[in-house]
Design a protein around this nucleic acid. Structure first.
Lengths: 155, 155
DNA sequence: CCGGCAAATGCAACACTGTTGCATTAGTGG
DNA sequence: CCACTAATGCAACAGTGTTGCATTTGCCGG
């Protein structure tokens, strides 16, 4: 149970959770830890498989769903849908690292690539509307999936 | 079986399907018809429920999936994921009507609103990349779902 | 330090979306 | 009109997400 490493990381997650006004539980700390450590949004399935390096037993499937929901509800995590229709979660604040450029999603392999260009400014909204997120999604085929030769179905 | 109305619509769908180089079947015509008539992308569930006005029996669930896949494969339909993680399909070409303005998606009610502003120009891609679609997605709360009064959880 | 309450957990069962296998039916080309 | 292939319909399955309920646990007050 007592581990000297990564204590700062874990306590920061605990801090964040406590500051959000919800109970600090093992599951929440572990999940937020994982989200904050991840360099890209994680799916439920991926998180279920990660306790390998976390120490003790795996988190229950349903509990994991509820932990994620609670983190989203208190603003510590963000929820999005990937191209396969699966929810992916990321630590709030982490997306700031990805806010200053455009993403290209390959419709074939599902990969996400970061483009150099800057995203356009957000548009004006009608009265009463509230802006939460602006996603400038560019989709197509990446270099690896592009048909270099001939593709009869596309001709 | 014989209906005099909507013949032009239906035969156009048939034309399109035939031109795409695949078999012209009842299911494909009916589905493409529905997609072309719809003013917004339809989900599988929505399409399963629509034969009310189409005349004869409902299409099999699995067949509908396969019909949709075939329409996407031959370029007659487009497949996308909505905010709930459900696939939605639209007739190819229909999105051209929606290419000249921005969409606002309400994260609460799931509604889609058309904004007046024009979308930004597509960015430059790395070598080998192939642009297929540019989605400028603006998400937030619509006027109906915005918290007019106080929202303790957000404070 | 201890007890109690509400929230969080774990388990089972379920609902919805999408997929696969296989026998039958129906387009299409000759 | 025949035959051949693709498409259909049915059953069964897989993955993702949800709900109900009993039990445990974090947190707070005594």
């Amino acid at each position: 149970m007592v581990r000297a490493s990564a204590t700062a990381e874990e306590s920061l997650s605990s801090e964040l959770i406590r500051a959000a006004g919800v109970k600090v539980t093992r599951g929440r700390v572990r999940v937020l830890d994982a989200l904050r450590a991840a360099r890209q949004p994680l799916s439920h399935a991926e998180m279920e498989a990660l306790p390998a390096g976390a120490g003790d037993a795996a988190i229950d499937r349903v509990t994991l769903y509820r932990v994620l929901d609670s983190l989203v509800a208190c603003g510590l995590a963000l929820k999005a849908v990937d191209t396969r229709g699966v929810f992916r979660f990321s630590a709030a604040g982490a997306q700031r690292r990805h806010a200053d450029h455009i993403h290209f999603r390959c419709t074939d392999c599902g990969g996400v690539f970061c483009l150099k260009a800057e995203p356009p400014p957000p548009p004006k909204l009608p009265r009463g509307f509230r802006l939460n997120e602006v996603a400038y999604d560019v989709r197509g085929l990446c270099a690896g999936c592009s048909p270099h030769a001939a593709s009869p179905a596309r001709a």
